[in-house]
Amino acid sequence: MSTTRATPGRATPGRAPRRRLTPGRIARNTTLVVISLIWALPTWLLLVNALVPAADYGGTPHWWPQGFGLFDNMSQAWTKADLGPSMGNSLLYAVTSAAAAIVVATTAAFATVIMPVRHKALWFWLIYSGTLLPLQVFLRPLFLAYADTGLYDAQFGLFLVYVAIAIPFAYFIMRNFALTLAPEIIEAARIDGASWWRVFWQIHVPLSRSAMVAAFVFQFVSVWNDLLFGITLSTSKNIRPVMAALAELQGNYSNVGPPVVLGGALLVSLPTVVLFFSAQRFFVSSLKLHG
């Protein structure tokens, strides 16, 4: 019976080799931990102060839990801000506008990467330039145009805005994904006589499914969290998105305390958290495919 002795510095068969801790690796890990803690600090404060009963809040933020009034705070926020209809509006805007933007972005990425079009770089910058300007520059012209055309305080008007602002970044994601696809697959399909329309629907879309889901999640969260256009282009309760309704809790005529506002903020963030964890497997599959 023979025994195998591990040689120092060599990996034992069947066992993953140990990574040595170098100064660079330690510095990198320390930096990542510090950045994670900085990112988690606002979330911690949100959770802790949302737990405080509104009647016990003294005006000073708490760093550690003081009682448990979360459900009561959420209930007050839901009632006083009338979050039900506004959450339905945001769900409608986020789903439809994100889906429409993904369809347009996927089609544009296929046309500017896969198809033999001229001036591909020009088309990229023409579409992607929509993300280069701050959204505030569009408020005045949009408000005036919407007031003149009857789109102000209308669901279709907000839908158009959200689709327009979602397309550039979605196109950026889909274009970068299309660049990683093997061109031999498209060439083989074209040689077999497949039309561009058939190549798009039967080859490009199935291969791009994980990227489409990732882009949809990003745009859904972006539209769901929008406050700027919600308070500028809508006033009615049956039109305004949820962030505009939640903002009224902090208005001049609101008499609720910060725990109620934080409880409402925590409540309206739940759909995005659920969506992210539901789509997590698509992110993982995308990483495995291109890892």
Rank of each mutant, 00 (worst) to 15 (best):
M1L: 14
T3N: 12
T3S: 13
A6C: 06
A6S: 14
P8Y: 00
R20F: 03
L21C: 02
L21P: 00
L21Y: 02
T22N: 14
G24D: 13
T30V: 15
T30G: 15
L32H: 10
V34I: 15
S36P: 07
L37F: 13
I38W: 12
A40L: 15
P42L: 05
T43L: 15
L45I: 11
L47A: 12
A50P: 11
L51N: 01
V52S: 05
A55L: 14
G58P: 01
G58I: 05
H62E: 12
W63R: 10
Q66V: 10
G67M: 09
K80Y: 12
D82L: 06
L83S: 07
L83Y: 08
S86Q: 11
N89H: 07
N89T: 02
Y93P: 05
Y93C: 03
A94V: 06
V95R: 01
V104W: 06
T106V: 10
F110Q: 04
F110S: 02
F110T: 08
A111G: 10
A111E: 10
A111S: 11
I114N: 01
I114D: 05
M115R: 15
M115E: 12
V117G: 05
W123C: 11
L126H: 00
Y128L: 09
L132C: 10
L132K: 01
L133V: 13
Q136N: 08
V137A: 00
L144T: 14
Y146L: 02
D148L: 11
A154M: 09
G157W: 05
L158R: 03
I165A: 04
I167Y: 02
A170K: 00
E187F: 11
R190Q: 15
R190Y: 06
D192K: 05
S195D: 09
S195T: 15
W196G: 14
V199E: 13
V199P: 02
W201R: 13
W201P: 00
S208F: 09
R209I: 11
R209C: 09
S210P: 06
V213Q: 05
V213A: 07
A214R: 03
V217R: 04
V217Q: 07
V217W: 04
F218D: 03
Q219W: 00
F220E: 08
F220R: 09
V223E: 05
W224N: 02
W224A: 05
G230M: 03
I231D: 00
K237M: 13
K237P: 11
I239P: 10
A247E: 10
E248R: 07
E248L: 10
L249M: 12
G251T: 13
G251Q: 07
Y253G: 12
N255C: 00
P258F: 12
P259R: 04
L262D: 09
A265Q: 07
A265W: 03
S269K: 04
P271R: 07
V273D: 02
V274Q: 04
F277C: 09
S285V: 12
S286M: 15
L287H: 04
